[in-house]
């Protein structure tokens, strides 16, 4: 299996008749790190929501590991872990531990298995010390890591992040970025949207640019830097100066 995500002729029309996505073709290789850029309203979130059946195609098809999403929506939700932009409205538990357990409880795993997995991801995301704390007492970066833990515990192959750096301070960005890069190294396929390429592009191996519900550019990041500003995305500073774009983690 080379392509973990396959999207064919995908179009989506909203209930008010406007066209959100038009004729999207996209294959994503297993283990790749893809960044999806584009200005406000270009259709990034709409596209992501098709990957786990939150939105369904008007025409076309989305397949995850070869299986059409429509044939196995709950399977797709387990394989595609999705982290949304607003942290507060994704946290459902009264404690950090309980929130992480929410997904596996829905999958009806046995209690011992749930506890084992939760302890494991708490450790992985550096939240063990906060396990019994109430989520709204966490810092912004910790909250974001909690939302990542909440999907990681379901052992997805693909991790989708919609604007993972919004509302974070500098240490928050670094801690979240470090975990995303770590998860990629562990073999997860990463798909991430952002307005601000600077923070993450050094780690990506592919850049997609969306505009008006279409994918208008698709290439290795370095090759697209000069096209970015035509599509409302800021060019990373290093490349503007004619140099390399470095990693924020160094």
């Amino acid at each position: 299996m080379v392509n973990i995500i396959e999207i064919d002729h995908l179009s989506h029309r909203f209930s008010d008749g406007s066209l959100g996505l038009s004729d999207i073709h996209l294959n994503i290789r297993k283990g790749s790190f893809v960044v999806l850029a584009g200005s406000n309203g270009s259709g990034k979130t709409t596209l992501l929501r098709h990957l786990n059946g939150l939105l369904l195609p008007s025409t076309g098809e989305v397949r995850i590991e070869g299986t059409p999403v429509l044939d196995d929506i709950s399977g797709a939700r387990q394989k595609v872990g999705m982290v949304f932009q607003d942290t507060d409205s994704q946290i459902v538990g009264e404690t950090v531990f309980e929130d992480i357990a929410f997904g596996p409880e829905n999958l009806q795993l046995a209690r011992e298995e749930i506890n084992r997995r939760v302890v494991e991801v708490l450790e992985l995301l550096g939240l063990s010390a906060r396990a019994e704390d109430r989520p709204h007492l966490l810092s912004g970066g910790q909250k974001r890591r909690l939302t990542i833990a909440g999907i990681l515990v379901m052992q997805p192959a693909i991790l989708v992040f919609d604007e993972p750096f919004s509302n974070l301070d500098y240490p928050g960005i670094i801690s979240v970025l470090r975990h995303i890069v770590g998860l990629h190294k562990q073999g997860h396929t990463i798909l991430l949207t952002t307005h601000d390429l600077e923070k993450v592009i050094a780690h990506a191996d592919r850049l997609l640019i969306m505009e008006g519900g279409k994918i208008v550019r698709d290439d290795r990041p370095q090759k697209l830097f000069h096209d970015l500003e035509a599509f409302g995305v800021r060019q990373p500073c290093g490349s503007r100066m004619g140099g390399e774009v470095g990693s924020w983690l160094e």
């Binding site: 929501r49 786990n52 939700r77 387990q78 949304f84 929410f102 829905n106 999958l107 749930i114 909440g150």
Partner: peptide, 16 residues
Amino acid sequence: QLAIAMTSRCYSEDRT
């Protein structure tokens, strides 16, 4: 947004 996030975490009434 809460409903969407719960749905993508496979919310169902038959849970552990």
